[in-house]
Design a protein around this nucleic acid. Structure first.
Lengths: 111, 111
DNA sequence: CAATGCTACTTCTAAAATAGGAGTAACGCC
DNA sequence: GGCGTTACTCCTATTTTAGAAGTAGCATTG
């Protein structure tokens, strides 16, 4: 990747911020993470909480968040088998930033 | 809005956070805002800085950010006419959060 | 014990968003 | 006058997202 050439760079390229927006820059991911702040939730519970999301996209997003290690998928063997999703430590570490974002939005984004 | 019913709400719905992710949850918007941190920039300068974005989407995003009042489009009458984009006060107010996000990503997202 | 409902998905198709390139108009440079 | 730059718009192709339907396992109801 030659995109981060420092020899005469006119503007910085925040590699870390770009990584963050790889998933935060997709619809629903931020909301899913914030929803999980309230504790573990199952698929249906999440679908209800994140109103407007479709099953297929929620499944996709959860898989993605699990893949990057922000969310944990926990299966409790039954019967009945139950599945729930949980924030990992890395995921929880993002919560203060999301709260700051909420505060900013309250002050700066009109309803 | 009946989506924020508190009578037996299983999970909160951060209306403000949702508003924030209306545009942050779209590809490029976060990066554009962070790029503008370094000062005003013209269209071509932004396209170069935000590597990977296409002309049509950059134009779209800028119009969106101008519409929500986070970015200002300033035309300097010439000739030659020149255009540059600038963060508004509201947009600048978001920068500390973006920095925190960067710090989080550096610590929590593998390269 | 069959009918219905819930959970946690997957699969399909349609609609929307994004990418990539070409085109345009105004101006500067040589 | 020919070429380059800026700041876009427009068009088409690919990718993403939405929305509905289907599936498999288990529990509840009558």
């Amino acid at each position: 990747m030659e995109s981060c050439d420092q020899t005469h760079e006119p503007r910085m390229c925040d590699a870390a911020l770009k990584r963050a927006f790889t998933f935060l820059g997709k619809r629903w991911n931020g909301i899913i993470l914030a929803t999980l702040q309230a504790g573990p939730a199952g698929f249906t519970e999440l679908r209800r909480a994140v109103s407007g999301i479709s099953d297929s996209v929620l499944a996709d997003r959860l898989a993605e968040l699990v893949a990057v290690g922000l969310v944990q998928r926990v299966v409790t063997e039954g019967p009945p088998v139950s599945v729930h999703y949980n924030l990992t430590e890395r995921g929880r570490a993002l919560l203060p930033t999301l709260e700051e974002l909420t505060t900013w939005a309250e002050a700066n984004l009109p309803v």
